Amino acid sequence: MKPLTTLASKFYSATMAYRNRRFDRGDRVVDVGRPVISVGNLTMGGTGKTPTVQWIVRLLQARGHLPLVALRGYAAGKPQLSDEAMEHEQMLPGVPVLVDPDRVGAIEAFLKKDPSRDVVVLDDGFQHRFVARQLDLVLIDARRSLDAERVFPAGRLREPLSSLSRATDVLVTHAASVDPVLRKRISMLHGRDPTAWCDHVWTGLSRFDVDGETTLDTLSGIRVITRLGIAAAEGVRNQIVEAGGVIVADVAARDHAPVTASEMQRLAEACTRADALLVTGKDWVKLQPLVDWSALQVPVLVPRLTLNFVSGQEELERRLLGVFASSESA
């Protein structure tokens, strides 16, 4: 590791520690008048927050609650261009999705107009501590070694691993089973075992073409071009291969990258060698308005994701629904 990078990481860690001490004292932390569930992580990049937020929202709805989602809108110059927000709006019809770096102001303004919403779900809220919360859920990716992580800019950590002790609960994602070594390491950092373990699995694929949307149950033998503008694209590519799909070519895209008209043209040209274009939900919400089906001429496949719990689902649900009781007693 370069000395300057090491020095920058130490400075960044010290800055985060100072910031967290202020929040620990309650400085500028605002109670928005509703129970708040925060979903976040320690690292930059994908741990599965989007499907987890959607799973939580559906759980709350199934129990008769009226949630709203609030997020910063990463990499979006305009709120309406946030791919995370657009995907939430598409997958959670009727649920208000507030996109604003000032989440306190956005939530308070919305609740003045619609006080019926009885719970707030913060997407990527662990470091955004201006909003008081009843439950702070941190996601840990089982595919990555915790002890190999380094604090930014030397690595992907947004703050030191010791900050995990601040979370109320830990959900281990992308886990096919409970890993006793990882469980012990998390317990050392967090003070107790993870609340739950889950994997992100495909339940099928949405198939979009000139005639609209249908479903597809299998990828077996289908040749695809991929365009995966997410942090953990390798996991999607692995699932394509496991499902029997054949990746003809992968069009590289950085996390949250916008889709341009010129890129759509390149994708259409690449797809002349394939049976379909496969993208994630975050890609599709940006790509959909630009699709010219006369040029693309192949369907677009979008995997449908759900959480498959291998341990702790009932306890996590109990903890999530318990925010209403803890809010009333606060």
Results as ranks from 00 to 15, higher is better:
Leu59Trp: 03
Trp284Glu: 13
Asp275Ser: 11
Asp209Tyr: 05
Val121Lys: 06
Val246Ile: 05
Gln313Met: 07
Glu149Lys: 08
Leu216Met: 13
Asp179Arg: 08
Phe11Ser: 02
Gly204Ile: 04
Arg227His: 15
Asp100Phe: 03
His65Tyr: 08
Thr173Leu: 04
Ala132Arg: 00
Val151Ala: 02
Leu68Ile: 12
Gly125Met: 09
Thr52Trp: 05
Ile107Leu: 01
Asn308Met: 10
Thr214Gln: 04
Asp100Val: 03
Glu315Ser: 11
Ser206Lys: 12
Gly46Phe: 10
Asp209Ile: 05
Leu135Gln: 09
Leu316Trp: 01
Leu81Asp: 15
Leu60His: 14
Pro79Arg: 12
Leu164Pro: 03
Glu328Leu: 13
Ala330Arg: 15
Asn41Glu: 05
Gln127Ala: 03
Ala70Glu: 11
Arg22His: 13
Gln313Ala: 06
Val104Cys: 13
Asn41His: 04
Val300Thr: 13
Pro93Lys: 08
Met188Lys: 12
Ser165Ile: 12
Arg58Gly: 07
Ala142Tyr: 00
His128Ala: 12
Leu287Phe: 15
Ala257Tyr: 08
Gly212Met: 05
Pro115Asn: 13
Glu87Tyr: 06
Met264Val: 11
Ala276Arg: 05
Val99His: 09
His128Arg: 14
Val201Cys: 10
Gly46Pro: 14
Arg192Glu: 05
Ala231His: 11
Gly77Ile: 02
Leu137Pro: 02
Lys113Thr: 10
Gln288Cys: 14
Val170Leu: 05
